[in-house]
Design a protein around this nucleic acid. Structure first.
Ligand code: SF4
Ligand code: SF4
Length: 820
DNA sequence: CCTCTGCTAAGAGGA
């Protein structure tokens, strides 16, 4: 008789194995849990690797494994050996990997050591504590190391050249800006590491294993850096991760007098730029990496390399280390998969592991707001009944919220979790490692028997064009050019080697762009699988979390979105519509019908937002598309471009820090609205003296340095006048910075000629800044910049920022997102 | 029952 909560009801997951579940025996086995029998100190699972659930085997869990949160209807992987269909997992042998096809990253698991709750929350919500200077430095030192390794050159000259490239390149500028750190400060930080990098690369490392301190040092020589940023999916252990450096090392262990042959081994190296803590978290990461690479090169040991000092710490994992980390993974994956539970036919959020009562850990926890919000969402009385420490945390993080706010949060969190559960069930990524090429090719999402043909060409930074030849001709074809793909080897040893996009596919060959260069695998037989990706709901959940933040922007949004305060409107159109713009707007409105015109008028008067509601086909999209030019003309030339304004602010900050005199700098923009936007950002006293003006105001004068903001991707009426453009670009005595979209501006002959000329003379360089700017807009709804509109990252709407005082938030369906 | 939506991502370090 079953005694679990399903109680043999029709919902009982054991009554049938769902179609999407794939079971198998063998080394990479997948068992369905048919029954769980608990005894004090042990747990016995009845399992089957056949979908008919026949025959069954048993698995005895003990010595702590009985605490594994495994239930009927779970899929498990078993490591170890079975004796005629009965498995034993205990202190000494075997592993049970719960839900192995959910690959968990090494960092998530090492994160769970301190607080399991934090790791679970971290999987749901991206944390965005904005990072820190040290973190950015860490990323940059990693990059310098990796580039030096690729170039096989660790000389100081090369290292400082790479460091300067990283500092000056567009990649990290946005991060530096967001952190308020100048390139100079960053440079000092970064350059501190270069000598020890150089030293490490050029001397064998004496690494002392803690166990044999009395022995003379074991000498480790890195003979080759075999791979950088290796991507590993290890479905046998339910793990994934990116290994900083895969190195071949020679390990010379001294043994009392007798000379031992040095051992050669391929091992993972984990680089750290922070304190040489050799902490349990760092060591755990390495232990997990060695486990993940078991099938690739079976490393006995891994190393932690602290770049500040250049010291290498060996990490030789024991069975116990692996066992305990896999137990943590099982608990983590259990919580991730069971975020929703059923009670009395209703879904509700599951409880998470308890909040720590350790003030120290929670104080610096990047998830503390979500932690408190979640607690109050599942337990409305938590704020009163919890322990003092917990109450303090709840008060501090959620004290500003009302009951409706909390209810809103838990309602949408629940819906997102439900959605995530259905998405997870449909996730077909596991086919890559659970199905053979033949099986996968049948349903069309896979191409196998591929061999590299021809050289790999670098298309751009981190984009490698590969060509493969098919040795067998498949008839079925489900993959099309443009599809997201993942490349693995056919044997299943190198799963998830690279991801990318399919370019061309024919019966005999395919070409694709990948994120890694696979040329060293020339003899390998590959498979390419379509990859729908596992896009979670973390963006939505992060927005939801920010909506609950204690800050003015979020306060206002909560008022509008949760408390449903009615949006306000300006009473009189003429107060926002200047006389000159009347005709233009009237002209624009001509093409619209009456309700559409009414909607337009409402939007023009809107202070908060306007909802345009209508049956399909009533022209909502048309209305909104008309809105854009109308809003543009609402203020005289009221066009502004926040991206460019922010970019100019950043450029000026850097220039002034580099020693430019403010009075030598002039900013030119064709629209007054843009001048206001820029001036608003230049309020701080550092910018006093910088002149911000229209082209006409600069007639007959010049500046040492001119920054020109084009604002629109089209030239607009103002700059179309060739003479005006001429004036604008000839105001600079020493340096001219033009900010705009080169690709689209080139459509105008004068600009095209100008850019071509400058390019020929090698007088201009192009930088791509788009994409680095999301950090610059710390508004609750993360916006990505696209001139001249700010398009929000959520699928529920977007924000138009045009005009002085009004941010028009327009909520609409997906169709417009496509249109844009 | 079907399709479409959305789209690097695992880690950067500090107490
Ligand atoms: S889930 Fe398992 S224990 Fe629960 S009712 Fe179904 S068979 Fe019984
Ligand atoms: S605030 Fe404390 S209890 Fe909550 S997730 Fe963070 S560390 Fe864990």
């Amino acid at each position: 008789m079953c005694n679990c909560m399903y109680n043999n009801s029709p919902l009982c997951p054991c009554s049938k194995v769902p179609d999407h579940v794939i079971l198998s025996g063998g080394l990479n086995n997948r068992y369905w849990v048919v029954d769980v029998e608990e005894r004090p100190g042990s747990k016995t699972l009845t399992i089957s690797c056949s979908k008919s659930l026949h025959p069954t085997e048993t698995c005895l869990l003990k010595d702590g494994w009985e605490m594994t949160p495994v239930h009927c209807g779970d899929v498990v992987h078993l490591e170890g050996c079975s004796d005629g269909g009965s498995w034993l997992v205990d202190r000494e042998q075997g592993f049970l990997v719960l839900l192995p096809d959910s690959l968990i990253s090494g960092t998530s698991i090492s994160n769970s050591i301190r607080c399991m709750r934090r790791a679970v929350l971290g999987d749901m919500f991206k944390s965005f504590d904005g990072g820190s200077k040290q973190m950015l430095n860490g990323t940059m030192v990693h990059e310098v190391f990796q580039r030096a390794a690729t170039a096989k050159d660790f000389s100081l000259e090369k290292l400082s050249k790479l460091a300067d490239e990283a500092l000056q390149g567009p990649r990290y500028l946005g991060d530096m800006y967001a952190l308020g750190v100048s390139q100079e400060e960053m440079k000092q930080e970064l350059h501190d590491y270069l000598p020890s990098l150089q030293h490490w690369a050029n001397t064998p490392s004496n690494s002392r294993a803690p166990s044999n301190r009395q022995d003379p040092a074991t000498v480790v020589t890195v003979t080759e850096l075999a791979d950088i940023e290796e991507n590993v999916w290890a479905p046998r252990f339910g793990l994934k991760g990116k290994i900083d450096v895969t190195a071949r090392v020679r390990i010379q262990r001294p043994r009392n007098g007798s000379h031992r042959m040095p051992e050669e081994n391929t091992v993972p190296l984990e680089l750290k730029t922070g304190k040489e803590s050799n902490s349990i978290e760092h060591r755990s990461q390495v232990i997990l990496y060695t486990l993940m690479s078991l099938e690739r090169y079976n490393p006995e040991t891994g190393f932690l390399l602290y770049l500040k000092t250049g010291n290498m710490h060996p990490v030789a994992p024991s069975h116990m280390d692996r066992r305990e980390l896999l137990k943590l993974r099982n608990t983590l994956v259990h919580h991730i998969h069971n975020s929703v539970e059923q009670e009395a036919e209703r879904s509700r959020l599951s409880r998470l592991p308890d909040i720590l009562t350790n003030r120290q850990t929670c104080q610096y926890c990047p998830q503390k707001r979500n932690c408190a919000l979640y607690e109050r969402a599942v337990d409305p009385s938590a704020a009163d009944v919890s322990e003092d420490v917990v109450q303090d945390l709840l008060q501090q993080e959620t004290g500003h919220l009302t009951l409706p706010h909390l209810n809103y949060f838990s309602h949408w969190l629940l819906l997102c979790c439900l959605e995530a559960t259905t998405m997870e069930a449909k996730n077909s990524r596991k086919r890559v490692w659970l199905q053979t090429v033949q099986e996968s090719e049948k349903n069309g999402s896979c191409v196998g028997n591929l061999q590299l043909s021809g050289p790999v060409t670098v298309q751009s930074e981190g984009v490698f064009l590969h060509r493969f030849q098919r040795s067998s001709v498949a008839s079925q074809q489900g993959l099309a050019s443009g599809d997201r793909i993942v490349v693995s080897d056919q044997e299943g040893r190198l799963v998830g080697l690279a991801t990318g996009y399919l370019c061309e596919i024919s019966r005999k060959a395919i070409s694709c762009t990948l994120d890694r260069d696979l040329s060293k695998f020339s003899g390998v037989l590959f498979r390419v699988d379509g990859d729908e990706g596992v896009v979670g709901l973390s963006t939505h959940l992060t927005n939801l979390s920010r909506l609950m933040e204690n800050c003015p922007d979020s306060d206002r949004l909560r008022e509008l979105v949760v408390d449903l305060r009615s949006p306000e409107f300006i009473s009189n159109l003429s107060s926002v519509l200047p006389r000159e713009a009347k005709d233009t707007v009237a002209n624009i409105l001509k093409g619209l019908n009456k309700p559409q015109k009414q909607a337009m008028k409402k939007v023009l008067l809107s202070k908060d937002y306007t909802l345009i509601v209508g049956m399909p086909g009533t022209g909502k999209t048309t209305t909104i598309c008309t809105l854009v030019p109308a809003l543009e003309s609402v203020e005289q030339g009221g066009v502004s471009n926040h991206t460019e304004a922010a970019l100019i602010h950043m450029l000026l900050s850097l220039l002034l820090k580099a020693g430019c005199k403010p009075s030598d700098v002039g900013v030119i923009a064709p629209y007054r609205q843009q001048l206001k936007s820029i001036s608003a950002l230049l309020q701080s006293s550092a910018f006093t003296g910088v002149e911000v003006n229209t082209v006409d105001k600069y007639q007959g004068r010049d500046k040492s340095l001119i920054v020109l903001s084009f604002v629109r991707s089209t030239l607009g009426e103002l700059l179309k006048d060739w003479r005006r453009l001429n004036v604008a670009i000839t105001r600079a005595k020493h340096k001219l910075l033009m900010v705009g979209s080169a690709a689209t501006l080139r459509r105008y002959t004068p600009v095209e000629k100008l850019l071509n000329h400058l390019q020929q003379e090698n007088m201009i360089s192009f930088r791509n800044y788009l994409g680095t700017f999301t950090e610059l807009f710390p508004s609750p709804f993360l916006v990505t910049a696209r001139s001249p509109l700010l398009v929000s990252n959520t699928s529920v709407g977007f924000t138009l920022s045009v005009g002085t005082h009004t941010t028009h938030t327009v909520l609409l369906s997906h169709s417009l997102m496509n249109y844009m």
